[in-house]
Amino acid sequence: MLTVVIIFLWASLLLYLLLGGADFGAGIIEVFTSRANKTQTRKTLYRAIGPIWEANHMWLIIAIVILFVGFPAIYATMSVHLHIPLTIMLLGIIARGTAFSFRHYDAVVDDMQHLYNRIFGISSVITPLFLGIIAGSTVSRHIDPQARTFLDAYIFSWLHPFPIAVGLFTVAICGFLAAVYLVGETDTPSERQQFVDKVKGMNILAVVCGGLVFLAAYWEGIPLMDWVFGHPLGLLGVLAASASLVLLWYLLLHGKGTVLRLLAGFQVMMILFVATYRHFPNLVLLKGGGYLSLLEHRGQDKTIQALGLALLLGSVLILPALIYLIYSFQKKEPKQAPVY
């Protein structure tokens, strides 16, 4: 059962990064779209993410619940030492979620829309930025349970170049995912061209930020090079990701939307894999060489058992419905005009 639980944890993180990420990315892209094209972009965006919007964000909650039920010590340590970035991320989630629905359900369309749009855009950048910062801090050995001062315990647990670089990289990845996703949603060649350009832009941004991550790792003495290239599995992951990237660029202009999405999703999966497999089962690396491990710092067997069963039961119920939801809204226009 422990394996089941860990797989679910990893999978829900991946799915949050992919689906929630594409969703953040949609907001990021909107920020980077010229004013003239904004309305059209927004329309495409909404059509694409509207129906599955709520579900995309459930993955984060699933991951959190797995963490606090199955691995309470890890959840507690992260909650204490990453309190500040977590709080900022939460504020981002609040702002974004509400702005998103307000702008679509406000019965009156007027100047308030600008406000909603502005908040939506800003929080679409902040949230993944801090998500990345949190992820980066967990592996960069800055969290120090023995810290004495406020700064050491609560600020320098995350405020370092490496976590910030990971944060920026996450933002770029989200933008990239959304752009790829939206290429498949476009109707006209000119619109498609527009999103293809966005894919390229975001991809370049991601590569630059990825470079920053390596630089920062080198600077802080984090053995990222070794994690990524030091093991055949890591190398394999990198190669697979690169190959699919080349294919993606090749197919961008004429390929099918679904294929593009799968390729982009595969790349992100490889990135997450490469980033996590080498220090598995350690989820958090602490200052001074300590760690919090999924194998050692877990709840009692009965808890893991029950959690695993609940997750299996849940996925039997959820997955078919979710797949049918996504499938249903892939078919473009409804037979009769929808209300919204």
Binding site: G50, P51, I52, W53, E54, A55, M58, I61, I62, V65, I66, F68, V69, G70, P72, Y75, G299, Q300, T303, A306, L307, A310, L311, L313, G314, L317, I318, A321, L322, L325, S328, F329, P334, K335, Q336, A337, P338, V339, Y340
Partner: peptide, 30 residues
């Protein structure tokens, strides 16, 4: 967490189903 987590993990499922069903419902007219 590990003791009273059971309802929370089941609740995750319930929320998820709710979110999916809401997607169908709100966007499903016609």
């Amino acid at each position: 967490g590990p003791i009273f987590g059971m309802p929370f993990s089941l609740e995750g499922t319930a929320f998820f189903i709710e979110a999916i069903a809401l997607g169908f419902y709100l966007y499903g007219w016609g």
